[in-house]
């Protein structure tokens, strides 16, 4: 006997005769509630019913599981958002230190000239000679006993008791240069003597 066409289920009538589809869906829901594999729809329905139960009577979290969550959160350090700041701060600090070091070097070189080189150099050549002498003294041993024998700053007047030579036109034209040359030669000699004195070979 042919079965009459099934009507769609009447949801508002709980006791209406079920269709075959409803019976199949009901079996799937029951399996899903029992934790067995079920269709996606039945799984979603079972999840909704479990959510209903959990809202009505929420279960406490297991102590050990909770402690593990806390330990993980406390042990984890989230820094991605701050990484760029760290880079900026690092570069900023490095730059500031570099500037401070260069300023300190400049101030020191101008306020504490090396006695050996300052004594020997001409005023115009002082910074360059001072740096050269300091660089040299950094790689060579220093002998204190000879320090007292170092040349000291003094006037250049004593260099010019004798008149400059005027034998040639060139010399006359360059009399100014000759004076500078004499001063430079004297200072070079002083510098050389001072180095020997510091090395202890004087």
């Amino acid at each position: 006997m042919a079965r009459p066409p099934e009507k769609p289920p009447v949801l508002d009538d709980p006791d209406a005769p079920p269709t075959d589809e409803e019976v199949a869906l009901a079996a799937e829901l029951r399996a899903a509630l029992d934790g067995q594999a079920a269709s996606t729809n039945a799984g979603a329905d079972a999840s909704l019913l479990r959510a209903l139960a959990l809202a009505h009577e929420p279960r406490p979290i297991d102590d050990a599981e909770h402690r593990a969550l806390v330990d993980r959160a406390v042990a984890t350090k989230r820094t991605p958002a701050r990484r760029s700041n760290v880079v900026r701060v690092t570069f900023g600090l490095a730059g500031a230190v570099a500037i401070a070091a260069s300023v300190a070097l400049l101030i020191r070189s101008s306020s504490q000239p090396d006695a050996a080189s300052s004594a020997a150099m001409a005023p115009a050549a002082a910074p360059a000679v001072a740096v050269a002498a300091r660089a040299e003294s950094a790689t060579t041993p220093v002998s204190d006993p000879s320090a007292s024998a170092l040349a000291v700053p003094r006037s250049t007047q004593s260099l010019f008791d004798a008149p400059f030579t005027t034998a040639t036109a060139t010399a006359r034209a360059s009399s100014g240069s000759a004076r500078i040359d004499r001063i430079a030669a004297a200072r070079r000699a002083d510098l050389r003597e001072n180095r020997f004195a510091r090395w202890g070979v004087k």
Binding site: S47, A51, L54, P58, R59, P60, H66, L69, A73, V74
Partner: peptide, 22 residues
Amino acid sequence: GELLVMHGPGLYRSVLLPRLGS
């Protein structure tokens, strides 16, 4: 950690579990 241990279980049970449903 102590603060979380103190308040976390209640937070889970009263706030998160009912709203999220699993």
